[in-house]
Amino acid sequence: MDLQINDKVAIVTGSARGLGAATARKLAAEGARVVITDILAEQAEATAAALRAEGLQAHAIMADITQAADVQRLVDETIATFGGVHILVNNAGFPRDKYLVRMTEQDWDLVMEVMLKGTFLACRTVMPHFIDQGWGRIVNISSRAHLGNATQANYSAAKAGLIGMAKALAIEEGRYGITVNCVAPGFMETEMVQALSTYATIKERAIQMQPIKRVGKPEDIANAVAFLVAESAGFITGEVLHVTGGRYG
């Protein structure tokens, strides 16, 4: 299927590795010019270099998306490098899991800053360009955790907030040919998850609770994002696409 994104430029936040890297690879393989952006500068450049070695168009930019000046520089450099910006995938984020009575303000603030403030700043910065060109695609990477998980009051709240933000922006910006949607992953086998000491237990429990009896792969999320940014998905906005193997509770 031709996604018709050959002439499009995509920024994927938190894309040095994991779901973000897989998403950037998929969009690049479909013909987009992708910007790998992360606070992990060396890993971001390595990911971009690997894509370029495969003949794909990729550029790495180190940026802290919680800082407005960094986000402005990210967008400005993207436009200077590739001539525009058309797609934004808000993927950056991480958990700081604790029971509420043990959760510190820093645990709360770090998660909110990256996922909610970072997404707000990125959306606000690209939006004038999307409006001017009358076309844009934003996909927020939420999580099945938006339904609630024990020890994840901060993470669940932030992931639910990404959905609320997407629905508000879908209403606000639709008149300009801009769509805003979410992908909500379930259990995904990423480097970050595999590094957890409880990985084997979490994996076994997740598979037991899913109708589809395998773990999710980063490519499953990348394929969902690619569908939502396609030209043919232009009448889909304000939606949440769960990629969970059928698990919701």
Rank of each mutant, 00 (worst) to 15 (best):
A28R: 03
A29R: 15
A29K: 15
A29N: 11
E30T: 00
E30L: 13
G31P: 01
A32K: 02
V34A: 10
V34I: 14
V34P: 06
V35C: 04
V35I: 15
I36Y: 01
I36V: 14
T37G: 05
T37K: 08
D38N: 07
D38E: 04
D38G: 08
L40P: 00
A41E: 12
E42P: 01
E42Q: 14
E42H: 11
Q43K: 15
Q43N: 11
Q43A: 15
A44E: 03
E45N: 09
A46Y: 01
A48C: 01
A48P: 00
A49E: 10
R52F: 01
R52P: 00
R52L: 01
R52M: 00
R52G: 00
A53F: 08
E54L: 14
E54M: 10
E54G: 12
G55Q: 08
G55C: 10
L56P: 03
L56D: 05
Q57G: 03
Q57K: 13
A58M: 02
A58P: 00
H59N: 08
H59P: 00
A60S: 12
M62G: 14
A63K: 05
D64A: 03
D64N: 14
D64F: 05
D64E: 06
T66W: 06
T66Y: 08
T66N: 06
T66L: 06
Q67N: 12
Q67L: 13
A68L: 14
A68Y: 10
A69M: 05
A69F: 04
D70I: 01
D70M: 00
D70L: 00
V71P: 03
V71G: 02
Q72S: 07
Q72T: 10
R73M: 09
R73P: 00
R73H: 13
R73F: 06
R73V: 02
R73W: 05
L74V: 08
L74P: 03
L74S: 09
V75M: 09
D76I: 05
D76F: 06
D76G: 08
T78N: 12
T78R: 14
I79R: 14
I79H: 08
I79Q: 08
A80F: 10
A80C: 07
T81E: 14
T81R: 15
F82T: 07
G83H: 07
G83R: 13
G84T: 13
G84F: 10
V85H: 11
H86K: 06
H86C: 02
H86W: 07
I87E: 01
I87D: 02
I87T: 01
I87C: 03
I87F: 03
I87N: 01
L88I: 11
L88V: 11
L88F: 12
L88P: 04
V89R: 04
V89K: 04
N90M: 10
N90R: 12
N91F: 15
N91S: 14
N91E: 12
N91A: 14
A92L: 12
G93M: 13
G93F: 11
P95I: 09
P95G: 13
P95K: 11
D97V: 11
D97G: 10
D97Y: 12
D97C: 11
K98Y: 15
K98Q: 14
K98E: 08
K98V: 04
K98C: 05
K98M: 10
Y99F: 15
L100Y: 13
L100S: 07
